[in-house]
Computed example of a mutant assay.
Amino acid sequence: MPITLTSDALEATITPERGADIVQVVDLATGTPLLAESPTGRVNAGSVPATDSMARWLHGYPGGWQLLVPNAGPEREHGGARQGYHGKASLAVWDVIAQDAASCELETHLMTAPLRIRRSVTVTGDALTVTDVLSNLSPDPVQTRIVQHPAFGTPFLDDESYVLTSAATIVTDAAAPGTLADADVTGRPDEVLPRGPVPGSIRLPGPGSASSLFAALTDFAAPEATFCSPARGFAVRLAWDLTVLPHAWMWIEANASTGWPWFRRLYAVAIEPANVIPGEGDAVRRRRGGPGTEIAGGESLTLTTSIQRLALPAV
């Protein structure tokens, strides 16, 4: 059963039965849902080919916020195991260890990497904080890709919205960069993408614009990105641990994809803290892909990620 956490400013819904996903966060002052909702979340019948891990992951994908471990991106062979699309943590059933009105603690164990993950979610005032502890239960070191996968959507974001980030560099995907930028481009985010109304900001495409993007942000001065919604009258800042997650995947799907799986039904804008740049090969002295972060035998790695409601910046 879903878990609902509430503060005086936010309401969050978490699903232990699938990935401990944060499927939605609602701003209570305006009644505005913040996170994207995917039409694939309503798919709950039929079978998925066992050999197609991407289809299996998208089967029931609700939008919202996932933790991608031990893999992120296409399935791969690593450590003697075939790790599926976007890893196992976001599909796993999680045990509820503790729960009250404003917080919960969950735990799961993975099969394709010797990891136990404990996730704590807390809402306090205008902030939601997620703490993930990845523990290596093997005496040998293990390497893991890690991506926090929150996607924001409508009605919070629209064609007046923009995002502020301190990233000095954007690296577009070498194979499928989308419509907003050319492939394999490296530059300043506000030079590669349309500029927003605040210095250093990026203007976001609105629903129905048929715009898309797949890229990575890197060279951050501060580990945060702020989504600004003039129409709704507030902003939301995403913050994370830069030492563990030095990059952020950035993707936009503004009702652009005509075929499977979206059929022009999804509007989502995501900046996702990550320890790898997506893709394979080199990107201007930066390696795409790779094994990720090494956790020594018997050791743990702790990640803290948060979102917070803020006033809009002065224009």
Rank of each mutant, 00 (worst) to 15 (best):
T304E: 14
A102F: 00
T172Q: 08
A98N: 03
L28A: 00
H109K: 11
E107N: 06
G281K: 08
A181M: 06
T13V: 12
H109R: 15
S257W: 00
L312V: 03
W240I: 07
T131A: 12
N275D: 15
D182M: 01
W94C: 03
R56I: 01
S257F: 07
G292M: 07
G80Y: 07
E272G: 10
L106R: 05
H78V: 11
P313V: 04
P155Y: 06
A225N: 02
T13H: 02
R288K: 12
L242E: 14
I307W: 10
L10Q: 12
T302L: 07
D52Q: 05
R288D: 12
E105F: 00
N136W: 06
P205S: 06
A254F: 07
N44L: 06
L58P: 01
P194F: 08
S166E: 14
A72D: 09
E224T: 06
S209G: 07
V315T: 11
T124D: 15
D27N: 15
S300L: 08
L68C: 15
L204S: 13
R232E: 12
A45V: 12
S209H: 03
A231R: 13
G298V: 02
S103Q: 15
P197E: 05
L91Y: 01
V93A: 13
L137I: 04
G63Q: 12
A98Q: 13
A167Y: 04
N44C: 03
V69K: 08
P155D: 12
P62T: 13
G41P: 03
G41M: 04
N44H: 08
W240Q: 10
L238Y: 11
T243K: 09
I295T: 13
L217C: 07
L164H: 02
P62L: 03
P49H: 03
N136G: 06
I117N: 05
V48C: 11
R264N: 12
R203E: 15
S47P: 00
A283V: 04
S212C: 13
L128H: 03
A215S: 11
D190Q: 08
F156Y: 11
Y162V: 11
E280W: 05
P278F: 07
G279Y: 02
D241G: 05
S211N: 13
D21F: 02
F152L: 15
F263V: 00
L128A: 04
D52K: 00
V315D: 12
G196W: 09
V284M: 06
A55W: 01
F152V: 05
D241K: 00
L213K: 08
V96L: 02
A222S: 14
L213E: 10
L115A: 13
L193M: 11
T172W: 11
Y85C: 10
G153T: 10
I3D: 08
